[in-house]
Design a binder for these strands. Structure first.
Length: 858
RNA sequence: GCCCCUGUGGUGGAAUGGUAGACACUAGGGACUUAAAAUCCCUUGCCUGAAAAGGCGUGCCGGUUCGAGUCCGGCCGGGGGCACCA
C-alpha cells in the first residue's frame, strides 16, 4: 500500500497518498446520522486566473487539521469545498477575449481543484458546488423568490454608486473612500432603477443575535457598528409658514431641545425648495447645485469645513416656542433619520462647528457640574435653561421630554439604524438572472388569481416614461432561468446590462402558470395564461451565491429542495467557519440575513448560520509588505510543494505563528519544519527503508520513562491545541517530542504510532506513509485518536524556584505535596539562597505549591 | 476625529499574575568525512567578568502586587475598521 521510498521522497509519497484518498473516498462524509457530526467550512474561493494565493492554504490547512483530528476522534466529518465563480474578473476577461466567461471560469476551477488536491486537503470532492452551475443557481433564484414573496425585495430608482470603469453599480459596502472595492476605480452617484433587498427589516435581529455566536469580538463590533442602532426620538417642529406643515427631525438628544438655535435640512430634503423664500432662492439653488456635484470623496475630504445656506424660513421650537432659522446644509444627509435635524450647537460638535462658522447663537442647556464648561459639551450632566425640565438628569430628561412630546402628539421614541437596504442588482452579464418579468397592470392582475401565494403583499412596480410595469416572479417549477448567449459581454455603459440586447430572450410571451416562454416576435401561443412580458435585465451581485452555499453542501445533488429537511437537521450549520476578516460586514452580514429569512420560511431549523467563526491572519511578503504581483513578493504554493512538499508547506504555514496573526513569510523558516519531518522519517525507518531497529515491535523496549511521559504530555497538548486552533504551539510540542525520540536508545512501537497519529492532521502524507510502513492499515485516520493517561503526567519530583524579594536565587527539587515549611527549610539550606539571606530579617514567605517560593526580606 | 487590535533577542515566535525568550531560523565553534552535503554536539538577549557570579532587560512613564510581558492609568509607534448617521 505504501511506497517503497528509502528516503523521505515527498514527490513520490504525496501524490501516492492523494490518489489513495481519492480512490478510497476516504473523505466522503458519512451517512450514519447516529454518529456525532462535525462540519468544518472554509470560505470558498473565487477561482481567479492567478491560481491559489498562499493565503488560501493558510486558512484551509487550519480547518483541514481540525477536520482530520475530529474524524479520528469519532466524528462524522463534513469538510467540503466549492467555487464562488460569478465575478467581475471572469467577465472582464470575456469582454476582452469575446469567449464565454463560463469557459474561462471552468479552466480556472480546474486549476484551483488541481492545486487544492496537491495540498492534500481532506475535502469531500463529491460535494463540490459551483455558483455558476444552473443546478446551483436555480436555488439562488428560488431563495430570491422567497424574499420577493415576503416583500423583502423591491425596485427603487435611487442615487447609487456607479462605477464607470466597471460599468456597474456597487453596494455601499463595496465602496471605500470613493473607490470601488474591486479594482479601486472612482465611483459616482447616479440615479438608476435598482433591485433592493430589505435587510433593514432584519436590523434588530441581526444585531440582537450577535450575542449567540462565537465570533471574534472585533468582527461582532464591526457588524454592530455597521448596523448602527441608535435610540432617540422623532420630534415635529411647526413651521412658521403653517401651509407647509411640520418639519420632522430625528434626534438622540431630546434632552437638549431647549438648546435648539437653528434647524438643518439636507439639500435633497423634499421640503428644501418649499422652505426657500424668494430672497434666498438664488443662493439656495447655487448651493444645491454645488452639493449635488460634489463627489463623495470631496464630501468626506471637506468634512472639516462645513457649508450651508439659510433657507429664509423659520420653525417653532415645540418646547418653548422659540423661532429658529432653517438652514440647508450637506452635513445632514437625506439617507438617515428624516434628513432634517434640530441643531444644538452647545452639545453637538458638528452643530457647534457650523454655528461658529455662520455666527449662529449657542445656548447651553446641560451643565456638567464641573468648573470647566467648554463647549461643545457632549457628556452627561443636569439640565439648565430648560423651562419646567431644568434640574433633571439628562437621562431622565430624555425619557420625560420624549414622553411629554408624545402626549401632545408631536413626538415619539424611535430607533434608527445606519444599515441601509441592500442594493442587489448589477448591470452585468456574468451573474444570476433575476427570475422576474415585467408585465402591465392588467396582465399582473390576471396572474394574481393563480399566483397569489408567490406574490408580495404589495405589488413591486416601477414607472418609466409614463408606463407602470409590475414585477411578476417566474414560477419556481420553471427555474433555473439561465443566461442567454450574447454577442458582446460589454455592458452598454448607460446602466443596462448586456442582457438588454438579447431581444429573443428579453421580449417574450410568458405563460404565467408554467413559466414557459417564446420570443415575442413569434405568434402568441394559444391559451389563457400567455401574457406579454419583458425580462429583468439586471443580474444578481456576486454575494448572492455565497449567501447560502454552506447549506447546499449538505445535499448538493438535491433537485427538489436546497437540501433535504433531514440533512438540514442532522448537519445543521458549520461548527467552524474559517475565512478572512475582510468579509466581516459583507458576506457575513448578507448570509446571516438570508439565513434568517430561510429560518422564518421554515427551511432551516436555526436562526444563525455560523456558530463559530475564525479569521486566519494575512501572510505578508518577505519584506513585511502586503503580497502583490507589482511588488514581486508573492509566494506560489506550487513552487513550495515542488521544492519541499505539501506536508512541509502545511506545517510551515501553521508554524509561522498564531493562525489569526498577520505575519511575514520567511523562506528560511521552512527548512526547520522540513528537517523536523526528515527526522521523524529517520526515526521510523532505517536508511534501507526497513523499520528502525530501535523500535521494538513487541513493545518490550526499554523505553526511557521520560519519553513515555513526554508522549502523554504531547498527546494532551496537541489535542487541546488543535481544539483551540493553536497549531503553532502543537507543532513546537511535536518537535520537542521528536528531539527526545531521537535521543532515546529504544522506543515502543505503540509510542511511535501514537506520535504519528498526532502528526497526521498536520502532515498527512508522511504520516500515512510511515503508518503503513510500520505495518498498520491505512488510513491512519481510521485509528482512534490517542488518549493520554493522567497517571503518566504526575511528576515524582517538582522543580521549585526560590526567589528572594522576587529575584531568582536558586532552584529546589522537591517531592509533590511538600509543605511550605519544609520547602522553606530546604531553601534556607541552599548555599546560593542562604547567601542572600545573611544579615536580613525575613518578613514573609510565599509558597506557590510546586512552582515558586518567594522569601521577602529587609 | 472616534472605535478596536498590537508592540518580547539578529529573525518568526513561546510564556494559567509565578524561572522571560519554549520551539524554530540565522550566526559562530566542534564531531563525522579524503572533501563536501546531510547528520549530530556546543554557544548564541545585553553589560561586567577568565570563571563563579552579578547587574540590566518584554515600546516609554507611572501605579497595584511578595512577584507584572501579563492587571490599571497616561504617552509614543505599527495595523485594521468607521467617518458629518444627528
Amino acid at each position: 500500500m505504501a511506497t517503497n521510498s528509502t528516503d523521505y521522497d515527498f514527490l513520490q509519497i504525496e501524490p501516492h497518498w492523494q490518489s489513495f484518498w481519492d480512490t478510497q473516498k476516504t473523505f466522503r462524509a458519512g451517512t450514519d446520522t447516529s454518529k456525532p457530526k462535525f462540519y468544518a467550512l472554509d470560505m470558498f474561493p473565487y477561482p481567479s486566473g492567478a491560481g491559489l494565493h498562499i493565503g488560501h492554504p493558510e486558512g484551509y490547512t487550519g480547518s483541514d487539521i481540525i477536520s482530520r483530528a475530529k474524524r479520528s476522534q469519532g466524528f462524522n466529518v463534513l469538510h467540503p469545498i466549492g467555487w464562488d465563480a460569478f465575478g467581475l474578473p471572469a467577465e472582464q476577461h470575456a469582454v476582452k477575449t469575446g469567449t464565454h466567461p463560463a469557459s474561462n471560469t471552468q479552466n480556472n476551477i480546474a486549476n484551483f481543484r488541481r492545486q487544492l488536491k496537491s495540498l492534500g486537503f481532506a475535502y469531500d470532492w463529491e460535494r463540490e458546488v459551483d455558483t455558476t452551475d444552473p443546478k446551483y443557481f436555480k436555488w439562488t433564484q428560488w431563495i430570491f423568490l422567497q424574499l420577493f414573496k415576503r416583500g423583502l425585495a423591491y425596485v427603487d430608482e435611487r442615487p447609487v454608486w456607479w462605477c464607470p470603469e466597471l460599468r456597474t453599480v456597487l453596494a455601499n459596502e463595496e465602496v471605500t473612500d470613493g473607490k470601488s472595492e474591486v479594482g479601486g476605480f472612482p465611483v459616482e452617484r447616479r440615479n438608476l432603477r435598482q433591485w433592493v433587498l430589505r435587510i433593514t427589516a432584519y436590523a434588530d435581529r441581526l444585531l440582537a443575535d450577535l450575542k449567540d455566536v462565537d465570533w471574534p469580538d472585533s468582527t461582532k463590533r464591526m457588524q454592530e457598528a455597521w448596523i448602527g442602532r441608535s435610540e432617540g426620538a422623532e420630534l415635529l417642529f411647526k413651521l412658521e409658514n403653517a401651509a407647509l406643515g411640520d418639519l420632522k427631525v430625528f434626534t438622540t438628544r431630546p434632552d437638549t431641545v431647549y438648546g435648539v438655535t437653528y434647524m438643518v435640512v439636507a439639500p435633497e430634503h423634499p421640503l428644501a425648495d418649499a422652505l426657500t423664500t424668494a430672497a434666498q432662492r438664488e443662493q439656495v439653488a447655487n448651493y444645491k447645485k454645488k452639493a449635488a456635484a460634489k463627489s463623495d470623496l470631496e464630501r468626506t475630504d471637506l468634512a472639516k469645513e462645513k457649508s450651508g445656506v439659510f433657507s429664509g424660513s423659520y420653525a417653532l421650537n415645540p418646547a418653548n416656542g422659540a423661532r429658529v432659522p432653517i438652514w440647508i446644509a450637506d452635513y445632514v444627509v437625506m439617507g438617515y433619520g428624516t434628513g432634517a435635524i434640530m441643531a444644538v450647537p452647545a452639545h453637538d460638535d458638528r452643530d457647534y462647528d457650523f454655528a461658529k462658522q455662520f455666527d449662529l447663537p449657542i445656548i447651553q442647556v446641560i451643565d456638567s457640574g464641573k468648573p470647566d464648561q467648554t463647549l461643545p459639551f457632549l457628556a452627561d450632566g443636569k439640565l439648565i435653561n430648560s423651562g419646567p425640565h431644568t434640574g433633571l438628569d439628562w437621562n431622565d430628561a430624555k425619557k420625560q421630554i420624549t414622553a411629554y412630546f408624545a402626549s401632545k402628539g408631536i413626538g415619539k421614541a424611535t430607533i434608527n439604524y445606519k444599515l441601509r437596504d441592500w442594493l442587489f442588482s448589477r448591470q452585468r452579464y456574468w451573474g444570476e438572472p433575476f427570475p422576474i418579468v415585467w408585465v402591465n397592470e392588467a396582465d399582473y392582475n390576471r396572474a394574481v388569481a393563480s399566483r397569489k401565494a408567490d406574490l408580495p403583499p404589495q405589488p413591486v412596480k416601477y414607472t418609466s416614461e409614463g408606463k407602470t410595469l409590475f414585477a411578476l416572479p417566474l414560477p419556481a417549477v420553471s427555474l433555473p432561468l439561465t443566461l442567454p448567449d450574447v454577442q458582446s459581454y460589454l455592458p452598454s455603459g448607460n446602466g443596462e446590462s448586456p442582457l438588454a440586447n438579447v431581444t429573443p430572450w428579453l421580449e417574450i410571451w410568458l405563460n404565467f402558470e408554467t413559466g414557459a416562454a417564446v420570443p415575442a416576435t413569434e405568434a402568441k401561443p394559444v391559451g389563457e395564461s400567455w401574457i406579454r412580458a419583458r425580462r429583468e435585465t439586471n443580474t444578481m451581485p456576486q454575494w448572492a451565491g455565497s449567501c447560502w452555499y454552506y447549506l447546499r453542501y449538505l445535499d448538493p445533488k438535491n433537485d427538489q429542495a436546497i437540501a433535504s429537511p433531514e440533512l438540514l437537521k442532522y448537519w445543521g450549520v458549520p461548527d467552524l467557519y474559517v475565512g478572512g476578516a475582510e468579509h466581516a460586514v459583507l458576506h457575513l452580514l448578507y448570509a446571516r440575513f438570508w439565513h434568517k429569512v430561510l429560518f422564518d420560511e421554515g427551511v432551516v431549523p436555526q436562526a444563525e448560520p455560523f456558530k463559530k467563526l475564525f479569521h486566519q491572519g494575512i501572510i505578508l511578503g518577505e519584506d513585511g509588505e502586503k503580497m502583490s504581483k507589482s511588488r514581486g513578493n508573492t509566494v506560489n504554493p506550487d513552487d513550495i510543494i515542488a521544492s519541499h512538499g505539501t506536508d512541509t508547506l502545511r506545517l510551515y504555514l501553521m508554524f509561522l505563528g498564531p493562525l489569526e496573526a498577520m505575519k511575514p513569510w520567511n523562506p528560511n523558516g521552512i527548512e526547520g519544519v522540513h528537517r523536523f519531518l526528515q527526522k521523524v522519517w529517520r526515526e521510523c525507518l532505517s536508511r534501507e527503508g526497513a523499520i528502525n531497529p530501535k523500535i521494538s515491535v513487541d513493545n518490550s523496549a526499554a523505553e526511557p520513562a521520560e519519553l513515555t511521559k513526554l508522549l502523554h504530555e504531547t498527546i494532551k497538548k496537541v489535542t487541546e491545541d488543535i481544539d483551540a486552533l493553536r497549531f503553532n504551539t502543537s507543532i513546537s510540542q511535536m518537535m520537542i517530542f521528536s528531539n527526545a525520540l531521537q535521543k532515546a536508545p529504544a522506543v515502543k512501537r505503540t509510542t511511535v504510532l501514537a506520535f504519528l497519529q498526532l502528526l497526521a492532521p498536520f502532515a498527512p502524507h508522511v504520516a500515512e506513509e510511515l503508518w503503513a510502513r510500520l505495518g498498520e492499515k491505512p488510513s491512519i485516520l481510521d485509528a482512534a485518536w490517542p488518549k493520554y493517561d493522567p497517571a503518566q503526567l504526575i511528576a515524582t519530583e517538582l522543580k521549585v524556584v526560590v526567589q528572594v524579594n522576587g529575584k531568582h536565587r536558586g532552584e529546589l527539587m522537591v517531592a509533590p505535596g511538600i509543605t511550605q515549611d519544609a520547602a522553606f527549610a530546604l531553601a534556607q539550606a541552599d548555599a546560593k539562597v542562604a547567601a542572600h539571606l545573611v544579615g536580613k530579617e525575613i518578613k514573609r514567605v510565599i509558597y506557590v505549591p510546586g512552582r515558586i517560593l518567594n522569601i521577602v526580606v529587609v
